Amino acid sequence: MAEVQTSTQAGALTQRFIEFVVMQAQQASLFLGRFPHPQTGKTEVHLEAARLFIDQLEMIREKTRGNLSPEEVEILKNVLSDLQMAFVQATNEAAAGGAAPAPETASAAPAPEVAASNAGDEESKKRFSKSYGS
């Protein structure tokens, strides 16, 4: 009976891992201008933010090497390949003037991770800490 519980738990973890990869890929796709921003309805290109999400997926692939199921490896490989190709295409379009990266505005503020990585000092990083209390 323990074998059934272990395989059920492994299946649930695989599903969560795939959902995580898909969520990261959706964020990268949003910043690559592949679909409209949910608040503005406009497609916007933010290459640095897209690069952040792609790099995070690449890091996950490296850090979990040898610990993923074949299905997880395949999904991660396909998602990364697709996003990297889309990033190259978006970069080429931006360089050609076809789709210039959207400027950072108050209505389309970068993700906290992006803003924190852009600000070099320790004080600016502190303002993005989360509080889970009252």
Rank of each mutant, 00 (worst) to 15 (best):
E74N: 14
M59D: 12
L57Y: 00
N78S: 13
K77M: 06
L52P: 05
V79R: 02
L68F: 01
L68N: 07
L80C: 01
E62P: 02
L52D: 11
V79W: 01
L80F: 01
I75P: 00
L80V: 03
E62R: 07
V79F: 07
D55V: 06
F53C: 13
V79C: 03
L68R: 15
L68I: 00
R65F: 10
K63N: 14
R51Q: 15
G66L: 02
I54C: 01
I75Y: 11
F53K: 08
R61T: 01
L80D: 04
R61H: 03
N67I: 05
L76W: 04
Q56K: 13
P70T: 05
L80H: 05
E62I: 04
F53S: 08
E62Q: 12
D55H: 11
N67S: 12
V73N: 14
V73W: 10
L57N: 03
P70N: 13
Q56G: 11
E72A: 15
Q56L: 10
D55R: 13
D55K: 09
L76F: 01
I54V: 14
G66H: 04
K63P: 04
N67K: 15
K63H: 05
P70E: 10
L80P: 03
N78K: 15
V73A: 10
L57W: 03
E72C: 13
V73D: 15
N78D: 14
G66C: 07
F53E: 09
E71Y: 10
I60P: 03
E62V: 09
L57S: 04
N67R: 14
M59W: 13
F53Q: 10
E71W: 06
P70F: 05
I60H: 09
L57K: 03
F53A: 10
E58W: 07
L57D: 00
R51P: 03
L76Q: 08
S69G: 06
I60G: 02
E72Y: 06
E62L: 09
I75G: 00
R61M: 02
L80N: 06
I54H: 08
I75F: 11
T64R: 03
L68W: 00
T64E: 04
T64M: 02
M59Q: 13
N78P: 07
P70M: 01
L76C: 03
E71H: 10
D55Y: 07
Q56F: 12
E71Q: 12
E62T: 09
L76H: 06
L76P: 02
K63G: 08
M59Y: 12
Q56H: 14
R51A: 07
R65I: 01
F53L: 04
E72H: 09
V73G: 06
L57V: 01
S69Y: 06
K63A: 14
D55A: 10
P70V: 10
E74F: 11
M59R: 12
K63R: 15
R61F: 06
K63Y: 09
M59C: 09
K77W: 05
R65V: 00
I60K: 05
V79H: 02
L80R: 00
G66S: 03
I60T: 09
R51W: 06
E58G: 14
V79E: 07
K77Y: 08
V73K: 13
N78I: 04
E74K: 15
E74Y: 11
K63E: 15
V73S: 11
M59V: 11
K77A: 09
L80M: 00
K77C: 06
T64V: 00
Q56A: 13
L52S: 09
G66M: 05
E71F: 11
E58S: 12
R51V: 02
